[in-house]
Design a protein around this nucleic acid. Structure first.
Lengths: 126, 126
DNA sequence: GCATCTATATGCTTGTTACATATAGAAGAT
DNA sequence: ATCTTCTATATGTAACAAGCATATAGATGC
């Protein structure tokens, strides 16, 4: 679904997922489902807040940004096979941030749902 | 709410409204609430699909784009006082486009609502 | 030694947003 | 008469974000 060039209708819909990476990551870190970027990547995809696959680069960037804001803290985990992983933990700031997101997302979802119902009614009149 | 520079949390939320200008305009043209850009501008703001005020330029650009796609047709209205207004009418293509938006918006709103509930539950566990 | 999977990043081009600005008719104020 | 304000339709552009490619590197299987 990731393309270049002039955005199509489907792209308009499928994209703009990345804004939702932040709340998704905060939530997943809260559940303890995953603690490092590579796992979060697949978890975010499974959350299916959108239809598109998220960009790995975007996830890592969100995590680092969140850390500069104090919403998460990280530490290297060199134990276990494979390359070192950076484990993230949610802070109180992060939980507060998630709470803000929840309010906003719920309100926005409500407005969208109402709009969809109204518009559906209009379309059925014909 | 419109600022420059590094995006704040509020901006992240308030922005991305412009993607909803298109469905809002299609809907409003369908209801007959307004037929030209300047009125649509305030009507879209009242729909409150987002919290930010929409950019007039964005509305006019959306309208012209919709016309190139055949979703609306326009004609100049020179009657009445003030500068000429370009009146828009919804076409069948436009109605179909609105129907697509309704499906997508409803589905997305649902996913967002479910996410908000899950996350809220998580936050209450503490 | 080579490919593959895990894992974390950064570079760069294109697309989008937000805001500023241009144009112009009409109407009322000074 | 001109000045400001309101209506109305646009376009220009700098800053920003998204999308996609690529770099690096440890481990493991072939």
């Amino acid at each position: 679904m990731r393309r270049r060039g002039q955005a199509s209708f489907d792209d308009l819909v499928a994209s703009r997922l990345s804004r939702l990476i932040e709340p998704a990551v905060l939530y997943l870190l809260g559940t303890g489902a995953a603690a490092h970027g590579y796992d979060l990547l697949s978890e975010v995809n499974e959350l299916a807040l959108g239809e598109a696959q998220v960009d790995p680069g975007a996830v890592y960037r969100v995590l680092r940004q969140l850390e500069t804001e104090g919403a998460v803290v990280s530490s290297w985990d060199t134990a276990g096979g494979g390359p070192a992983r950076r484990n993230y933990e949610l802070t109180d700031v992060g939980r507060a941030r998630l709470a803000s997101w929840v309010t906003v997302i719920a309100r926005r979802a409500d407005a969208m749902q109402r709009f969809a119902e109204q518009a559906q009614k209009l379309l059925e009149e014909k």
